[in-house]
């Protein structure tokens, strides 16, 4: 039960196309900060989709936080994702018509469990705290369209972290940041993950960041579908 991720004989493909993922085994301890890398098109984003329960594996077993995703219905998977997983996209993370605060608060408003895990603190307060930690506390009222890319990524991180999900999935969130900012962003992300006791799966091409993580996964090594 201490495994955050437990994949067995996973096979996935889009429609009737070629296999994109063919992973005999991949496990991840809870609390791990994992660095996932691989060349473009190797299936990193696809794997995250499977882990988040957005994409459904055609074969094999996918256990996330002890839950067998294949046994869940679509609606249950949606609820599971909302409750347990924080997701950060590579770019364009935010809903353009919501303010910074509303973007951060969205998962907590969407899901009662995440709200319950705020420990009595209000959604706004928690969002404000998180924003302060990631040094965007002064931007809360701003429309998200007026933020720099780095600021947007931090807002997205706050949103992924709110309500302490057990699994944070970040898909190349730093690719548009310069090196110094990348490190600063990661430091903040790690702090918050630690505070929440969350497992982090972090995708990047950038091997220079590898040293900051407790575990490195090379997707081409585990994924047999990649030629």
């Amino acid at each position: 039960m201490s495994l955050a991720i437990d994949l067995r004989r996973l096979r996935f493909r889009y429609g009737g196309g070629p296999w994109v993922l063919d992973i005999p085994e991949l496990t991840l301890e809870r609390g791990t900060r994992a660095f996932l890398f691989g060349p473009s098109g190797s299936g990193k984003t696809t794997l995250l989709g499977v882990l988040a329960g957005v994409l459904e594996a055609e074969e094999g077993e996918v256990r996330v936080l002890g839950e067998d995703l294949a046994s869940l219905s679509g609606a249950q998977r949606d609820a599971f994702r909302a409750e347990h997983i924080g997701y950060v996209f590579q770019m364009f993370n935010l809903i353009p018509y919501l303010s910074v605060l509303d973007n951060i608060a969205l998962p907590a408003r969407m899901n009662a469990e995440r709200r319950a895990r705020l420990d009595g603190t209000g959604v706004r307060e928690t969002a404000t705290q998180l924003a302060d930690h990631l040094q965007i506390g002064d931007l809360l009222k701003k429309p998200v369209t007026e933020l720099s890319v780095g600021q947007q990524q931090r807002v997205a991180a706050c949103r992924a972290l709110i309500g302490s999900p057990e699994l944070i999935v970040a898909d190349e969130p730093t690719s548009s940041l310069d090196f110094d900012r990348r490190e600063a962003f990661l430091e903040l992300l790690f702090q918050e993950c630690e505070r929440a006791g969350a497992t982090l799966v972090f995708v990047s091409h950038d091997r220079t960041l590898e040293g900051m993580f407790s575990r490195t996964i090379s997707l081409p090594d585990v994924n047999k579908a990649v030629l």
Binding site: D78, F89, I95, P107
Partner: peptide, 16 residues
């Protein structure tokens, strides 16, 4: 499409 993907990522199901 982007908006929909984000909404789904933060846990909005098909119903929502």
């Amino acid at each position: 499409r982007r908006e929909m993907a984000i909404l789904r990522a933060v846990g909005a199901g098909p119903n929502r």
